[in-house]
Design a protein around this nucleic acid. Structure first.
Lengths: 160, 160
DNA sequence: TAAATGTGGAAAAATGTGGTAAATGGTGGC
DNA sequence: GCCACCATTTACCACATTTTTCCACATTTA
């Protein structure tokens, strides 16, 4: 399965313009056969102190179609949980593609909910790409380090 | 099972270039049949004082594929622990190979998280290779010395 | 001494950034 | 209700910076 790889810092300017890192652009076109994508909110991430952090998520065009289909067919979610996914992920999504310089415009509602302002990070996430404010991502990583399963049997089996 | 062996000091220059020790290059090509590899963060190492140290990890290409597969199939990790492994090890990983002079470029995000600056160490780690800042490695070793099972029965049985 | 390995710098290419101009849409006045 | 003007958004262009590639020299090893 094709995957995005790596973490790339960049900026978002006052107009909300940002450039998709060229490594990701390559993968998008070569592996997903399409330079169109959907941009929406990510799932809220628990920071462990009662607060949640969230960023944005880029779905290559076909990944989003598949996601919507999977969501329709999914069982085991309460109606409140379904509404939450609809309101946070599905409805705010917008379809975009990069301009000929590799940039795209983040709509104001998404820029606001992810608190994107100047210093941001593009982070590979399997068949998707996360966009996070640099400051918020640091908080997520700090929590990840605390949660790392050092010394557990499961980790030992993975060779970590 | 093929193993890397030894510890090699070297440098990383201002552009993030460093050369894979030739002994490791030999093993990579002869034993792993591939000069491609994945570079990512290592597990955070507990220094015993509430702080964590971390370096980088080179996985020969096939070792990384196997690791990802094992991770998918693994049981016994909480969702927070899984997220931690994804955010620290899997997503930041990049695929690289050495240039014709035996060097490779450490991407900025990895250089930063391992605090690599000038004096570094390549340390054999079974089927992987660790890269550590010299200063941080000293702290890890100091902690290892404190943890050494001197005078225990288990150590005696090992003839240590 | 010769070969191999490692190191640094310079040139070329690619990428990213900011500003400017054009176009679009919305608002208010006539 | 139509037209004109203003503001905001979108597209374009040029420059600056970063990244990559290449080459030459220094240093170590056999």
């Amino acid at each position: 399965m094709t995957k995005f790889r790596g973490v790339y810092p960049t900026t978002i300017d006052a107009k909300g313009r940002t450039s998709l890192p060229s490594k990701f652009r390559e993968v998008m076109v070569e592996s997903f056969q399409d330079d169109r994508f959907f941009l929406t909110n990510s799932s809220p991430t628990d920071l462990g102190n009662g607060n949640f952090s969230s960023g944005l998520l880029i779905f290559p065009y076909n990944s989003f179609s598949k996601f919507e289909e999977d969501f329709q067919n999914s069982k085991g979610l309460t109606s409140a949980q379904r509404e939450s996914i609809v309101n946070i992920i599905i409805n705010p999504a917008v379809e975009l593609s990069v301009d000929k310089l590799g940039r795209f415009l983040v709509p104001p509602h998404l820029r606001k909910s992810a608190a994107l302002d100047r210093e941001i990070l593009f982070v590979a996430a399997m068949d998707k790409i996360k966009i996070w404010s640099l400051a918020e991502w640091d908080k997520v990583l700090a929590q990840n380090i605390r949660n790392f399963p050092s010394g557990t049997e499961a980790a030992a089996e993975l060779g970590l």
